[in-house]
Design a protein around this nucleic acid. Sequence first.
DNA 1: GAGAAACCTTGACCGAGATCAAATTGGAAA
DNA 2: TTTCCAATTTGATCTCGGTCAAGGTTTCTC
Lengths: 247, 247
Amino acid sequence: MTLPIQTANENCEDCPIRHRAVCARCEPDELHELDAIKYYRSFEAGQTIIWSGDMMNFVGSVVSGVATLTQTMEDGRTQMVGLLLPSDFVGRPGRDGAAYNVVATTDVVMCCFRKKPFEELMARTPHIAVRLLEMTLDELDAAREWMLVLGRKTAREKIASLLAIIARRDATLSTDGRPGQMVFDLPLTREAMADYLGLTLETVSRQMSALKKDGVILLEGKRHVTIPDMRRLMDEAGDDSDGGFLV
Amino acid sequence: MTLPIQTANENCEDCPIRHRAVCARCEPDELHELDAIKYYRSFEAGQTIIWSGDMMNFVGSVVSGVATLTQTMEDGRTQMVGLLLPSDFVGRPGRDGAAYNVVATTDVVMCCFRKKPFEELMARTPHIAVRLLEMTLDELDAAREWMLVLGRKTAREKIASLLAIIARRDATLSTDGRPGQMVFDLPLTREAMADYLGLTLETVSRQMSALKKDGVILLEGKRHVTIPDMRRLMDEAGDDSDGGFLV
DNA sequence: GAGAAACCTTGACCGAGATCAAATTGGAAA
DNA sequence: TTTCCAATTTGATCTCGGTCAAGGTTTCTC
C-alpha cells in the first residue's frame, strides 16, 4: 500500500517546497528565485480549491491540512483518486486545465508558484524536475496499487486496506507501547471513505462494525480507532506482503 | 479517458527514446551519449519481461509490440494496471525494485538504457527529466481516470470505456469513411479485458454480446470490432464529456 | 483433415453489496 | 440542558455480477 500519503516534513521551516517537493538539493540562488515567485493561499474546510476543468496558473504544495482529489460523473457518482497531505504537490507543469476537483477536507494552507516562472526555472534546473519526477512516480505507484484495491478486493478487504494506509501515515503508538498496536483518528467521513473505496457509505459502516465485532479494530466514538494487531489488519487487507509497512 | 495508450511514433527511426520519451529536444552530443548506453532486447508473446520485485538495472521504452503491467494477490486475483505500447517508458530512475509484472502480450522489442548512466545523464540534462515528468504525469492522469472506471462504473460502462480507449488509440476509419465510424482489432483476450476492468471473463463476454445485440458495436469473429457511432459508445461509457476524444 | 487445446459463449443459480427506509448517536447551537 | 441536525448504524429487500457448468469456435499441430 503506498497511496500518496506521506509523513509530515521533518525539517520544514515555512514551505515544504523548499526541501521535499522541489528543492532538496537547490543552490541558494535557486532558492532565492523560488522565493520570488512564491505565495501562500488559505482555504477553509469544505472549500473547493480547484474545479475540474479550471485554468490553473499555478503549481504548489500543501503546507498544512488535508485535501482530496475527486472525479465525478454527471449523474453524481464520484470517485476519490488521491489524498493530498502536507508536502504533496499539486498541478501540472506543462498543462493548463485541471483534471479533477481538489477539495479541502480540513483547513488548508498551500504554497503556490506562478506556473510560467516555475516552468522556466525547472527547464534550467535538473534536480527540480528529477525531484518532481520521483514524487510523481511514487504517486503513480500508489494509484496503481489502488487500482488493485478498487478492481479486485472485497468490501472488507477495502476497508482494511484503507485503515492500514491511514495507520501507516499518522498513527501513534498506544500509550502502553505494545508493538504492533496503533491508534489514530480517521480524517475521513464514512462517505469520503466510500468515495475512496468505490463503495456505498452503508457498506462502509457495516464493514467497520464487522471489523469491530471481530476484534480487528477497536472504536471509541465514530472516528477514534485502535488497531490492536497490525499484522492481523494486514491479513484482512489481503495484502501479499507487509504492504511496505515494515520496510 | 486517457489510459496510457498512445499512438505510435510518427518520426521514429529506430528508437522511440530519441524523440518521444526522452530526447525530443536533445542536443546531438546528448543523443550520442544516449546511444552509447543503449541496447535492444526482444521478447516473445506471453513471456514475462519483468517480475514484480526483481532488481531492475535498466530503464527503457517499448519499440514495438504490446505489454501489460499487472498486480497479483497471493490467491491469484490479478488486476492490470497499465498497458505498454510503442514509445511508452518502463522503469524508475531512482528505484531498484520493480513494482509489478510486465508481460509481453505480443512479440515485443524494447530499447533499454543501463540505469546508472541514464540517471547520471538525466541529472545533467533538464529536458530529459522534464520530458519524463510530462509522460509520467500523463500516466498518472490515466491511472486516476481508470480508478473512476474501476470504482464506479457498471460492467457495461466498463466495457464501453475500454472499447472507446482502444478505438481512440488505433482504430482506422472505415472504408466508406463515415464520420464517427471506427474499425479495429481487439489486442486483448476476454480474460485480459476482464483483468483490466475488474470483472470476470464471463461478464465481459456477456456484455460484449449485449452491446452487439443493441447495435452499439458490430463483431466479426471475436476480435474484429466496428463502432458504427462513436458518440453512442461514449454515451454507453457514461463519460461526462467526449472523454478527450475530440480534443 | 482429425484431434487437441485455447478461447469464447451461454445458461442456471447464488450471494456480496446496493438500495430504500428507519432508527440512533453525538456534537454544536441556543 | 434541551434542541437540532448531520453523521452513522441497522434492517429488509433487491439486483448486478460472480460462480459453476456445459457447449461451441477457432486455431494450431500432426
